[in-house]
Design a protein around this nucleic acid. Structure first.
Length: 478
DNA sequence: ATAGGGTTAG
């Protein structure tokens, strides 16, 4: 009775209609929703939402249930998690697992290991992984080249780039983009030009925006600003990086007016795009919003040209109009700007009021300006600050091992070393080791048992040593 | 289903 009465209301009808429409597909919904979600999909989701901790703990639980629930996809997602968060010990464990589970020849996993090791600054192990790939494709070559670039070895990067071509593997747009950044680091204009020629020869490469940007950037940084500008002008599609590269390029060449003119032109272009958006609503993806890097270029230009007021105006606009939070480098530009304008006290106040920790370079900028303008008081202060900062510099390795020390694993580490001396010679088979490694230790685990830590690390060290990889670098200093 | 990319003060 009551139900019949309710049914006469429109919103109830609506609801019923919706219910009815979903029951049509209920068979499908039932199958997907009522089964536990696939573990790999959950790992992937955690990875995308940046919840590394959850991903690692889920992986540990999967591993405890038995290695049958682990496949190459699970391993891949967890390696990416380790890469994102720069976790050397978890990363090593993943590598040992890959070896012990027999995934050593999976080129996808090997490539992400190259990426992992280079993100950890361990380019030696990255290259070692690369050497072990039986059929090297363009992606793993590129990963290695990229690793050398990221680890400040551009010469080696280009050497690998040449080796790749001698091995008859054709570079693609990603390889060339990475190789160009190596050219920038070396100021290697000729190699850059060679790549440009190569790109022009292969038509399918010339429609990659990142590659165009990399070419513009290369010419600008290697001193050929005219060619950079010509490329910039002839590029049909420009994104914020295209504009930024050119603005920074002009700023670096002391062409401050041109840099600022471009910045204004970019904003103008934006207005036009916005007007277009009003008439064609679907055309919204092409707005060019200046970002933090763009403003570094703008502020650099102002600083080099001594445009004090203009610089202050842009700095304020950056924060208020574009919601860009100033980073250390922006404050660096501003301090530089104020110092060149002779406003030493104002520069000092800015440093003191910054929401970020100043570095020695920033204080040195002030110190230098105090020197030329003879401000002894501020100079003395700056000097003290520099000493403070450079004296208390702490190595990355220490931070890394402190995570484990804080978890009470510090003593265990010594125990592991001691035990290893007593053990028979390393080189036991993978199977033997493999039976031991169904555990996974992560610093995010609140309750790692001592036994667990002990077994995992001992096994890990032996496995890696047997393969010629570096062991864990835990107690590098104390 | 799965791997590699560009702009950053002095």
């Amino acid at each position: 009775m009551r139900f019949k009465f309710l049914k006469s209301f429109p919103f109830v009808q609506n609801k019923l209609a919706k219910l009815f429409s979903t029951t049509k597909q209920s068979k499908f919904h039932f199958q997907t929703n009522h089964r536990p979600p696939r573990p790999n999909q959950v790992l992937k989701r955690h990875l995308k939402s940046n919840s590394t901790t959850k991903a690692l703990l889920l992986f540990r639980d999967l591993l405890r249930k038995g290695i049958s629930s682990i496949d190459s996809f699970s391993l891949l997602f967890v390696i990416k998690a380790c890469t994102q968060k720069s976790l050397p010990i978890e990363g090593k464990q993943m590598h040992a697992l890959i070896i012990n589970l027999g995934f050593e020849t999976n080129v996808f996993l090997q490539t992400s290991l190259i990426d992992l090791y280079s993100a950890l600054g361990n380019i030696g192990d990255a290259h070692h992984v690369f050497e072990e790939i039986p059929t090297k494709n363009v992606v793993c070559w590129t990963a290695l080249i990229s690793g050398y670039v990221d680890n400040q070895k551009p010469n080696k990067a280009l050497q690998v780039f040449r080796q790749m071509q001698m091995g008859n593997v054709e570079p693609d747009q990603v390889t060339l983009t990475v190789a160009l950044s190596a050219c920038v680091d070396l100021g290697a204009l000729e190699m850059g030009e060679w790549i440009h020629t190569y790109v022009s020869r292969r038509k399918e490469l010339s429609k990659d925006l990142s590659l165009d940007n990399a070419l513009i950037n290369m010419y600008a940084k290697c001193g050929d600003i005219e060619t950079a500008r010509r490329l910039f002008d002839s590029t049909k599609k420009k994104d914020v990086t295209t504009w930024t590269s050119m603005i920074v390029g002009h700023a670096l060449h002391g062409q401050a007016e041109e840099a600022l003119r471009l910045f204004a032109a970019m904003k103008e272009e934006n207005k036009r795009a916005r007007a277009k958006k009003r008439s064609f609503d679907s055309w919204s993806g092409s707005l060019i919003v200046p970002n933090d890097v763009t403003f570094i270029g703008v502020l650099m230009a102002c600083s080099h040209a001594g445009m004090l007021e203009e610089g202050k105006k842009h700095f304020q606009s950056m924060i208020e109009d574009y919601g860009v939070k100033p980073r250390l480098s922006h404050f660096g530009c501003m301090v530089d700007l104020l110092c060149r304008g002779g406003l030493l006290q104002e520069a000092y106040d800015l440093i003191m009021d910054m929401p970020v920790q100043p570095n020695a370079v920033l204080w040195r900028t002030l110190l230098g300006a105090c020197g030329t303008r003879g401000n002894i008081d501020l100079a003395a202060d700056a000097r003290v600050r520099i000493l403070e900062l450079e004296g208390s510099r702490v190595g990355d390795n220490v931070i890394m091992s402190n995570i484990y020390a804080a978890k009470g694993m510090w003593d265990e580490k010594i125990g592991v070393r001691e035990k290893m001396k007593q053990r028979r010679a390393p080189g036991c088979s993978s199977i033997e080791v493999g039976s031991l490694i169904n555990e996974f230790v992560t610093a995010d685990d609140d309750h790692p048992s001592k036994r667990e830590i002990y077994e995992v690390l001992e096994c890990l060290i032996e496995t890696m040593k047997a393969r010629g990889y570096s062991p864990l670098e835990m107690a590098s200093s104390s």
